[in-house]
Design a protein around this nucleic acid. Structure first.
Lengths: 221, 221
DNA sequence: GTCTATATGCGGATAGAC
DNA sequence: GTCTATCCGCATATAGAC
């Protein structure tokens, strides 16, 4: 594999650990197993990471940092509300279902294995990530386009999106972008109707020009 | 506590194990800890359950059996589609956020710790439960009231509902029934509009009489 | 940086007395 | 049914040679 040549040793260890932690669970994965997968002995691993927990924290931290960066970037690239939220959904799913699947799955499943200080660090990252969703959801709520309980909306949306890591398998019929469009339409129907709409400046409200149906609802009229 | 008097020993052990498995995780909970919480020694526990894994399987099996029974009952009590789906959401959340929280959380988090035969048993229960959702979602899709990809709808809905076990805390402002109504409206907006509507028998289609807004969307007109 | 060898403790599970 | 005592293996982590 040409792609594993230029990676630093620490990064390679991290990827391997993330994969095994997701496949077998953190507690059931031994340091010896990780070392074996890397064709080393367990003693060598501790030269790079001081403890097994350090490895777990590093896996989670990299995962959440990546998704935070991806969604921040997607959010910044779109000016209008419906497109902005769609971009967030797309970036979230692209990161989650792509190269960060292992790390983010581990983060969802294994946070109870963290010691209190490590737990606090990771929760700060998670809170920072969730905070990205507050402004757009708040805007949408103020416009009456989602439920007014913005915490409920955020938890429902993130719960549904994150769960996709458990069942989604890449498929030429429904790629990640297609999945993102459909989940966006399902979770934000009233924003979805307004994709591509223009802003009526006089009244400050939003009107649909051509409501996109995304081909998801068939027997309408 | 008067409520812990009439419970069989096996059931008491099960409840205690479920609580500790959820709090600390399965692998990090030792048999000695469970025994200590029950004021026994670890040797005594093995008289009631042959292995730690038997305990895990029993916890999961009771949890999924309870939610299956609850949702089956809710489903049978309602004739019309919108009310039927709402009843399923309500029963699911009532079971999940009530006395089965420990067991169902353990089931979500710890299924990778099951041996292959145990895993197969539990997956059969899970599949049986998910199969309950197929007919109503299929009906709604046929009527164009949800996305036509019924698998996507089911996974999205169950992902969002199950995630509520991670963040919902009972509150007098929003009880479980209130939560159920709002999540139903969020996940099935077009069914929610049709709550309480009558059936137009001539055309076989569904028309809204008085669309209930559930007080969730404020700035509409 | 990686190895071998090992310290040290805790895990699930069992045997047999009571 | 519950106890005490114990078997035995595997876990993380360390020490020190190379």
């Amino acid at each position: 594999m040409a792609d594993s040549i230029d990676i630093s040793k620490r990064a390679l260890i991290l990827r391997t650990a993330a994969r095994l932690f997701r496949q077998n669970g953190y507690e059931r994965t031994s340091v010896r197993q990780i070392a074996e997968a890397l064709e080393m002995t367990s003693g060598s691993l501790f030269y790079h990471y001081a403890s097994k927990e350090d490895l777990l924290v590093a896996v989670m931290e990299e995962g959440v940092r990546d998704v935070l960066a991806a969604v921040s970037k997607g959010l910044a690239g779109e000016a209008r509300l419906p497109e902005r939220v769609l971009a967030m959904v797309q970036c979230h799913l692209t990161a989650l279902l792509g190269p960060n699947l292992d790390a983010l799955t581990v983060m969802m499943y294994e946070w109870r294995s963290l010691s209190p200080p490590a737990h606090q660090r990771i929760m700060k990252w998670r809170d920072a990530y969730e905070a990205l969703w507050a402004p757009p959801i708040g805007e949408a709520a103020a416009l009456g386009l989602v439920d007014a309980d913005t915490v409920l909306v955020r938890q429902t949306v993130l719960g549904a999106l994150n769960w996709s890591g458990q069942w989604y398998r890449p498929d030429r019929r429904l790629g990640v972008d297609g999945l993102a469009l459909r989940m966006f339409a399902l979770l934000f129907p009233r924003l979805s109707e307004r994709l591509g709409a223009s802003v009526d400046r006089d009244r400050g409200s939003v009107d649909a020009l051509g409501p996109m149906r995304l081909g998801t609802v068939s027997s309408e009229a």
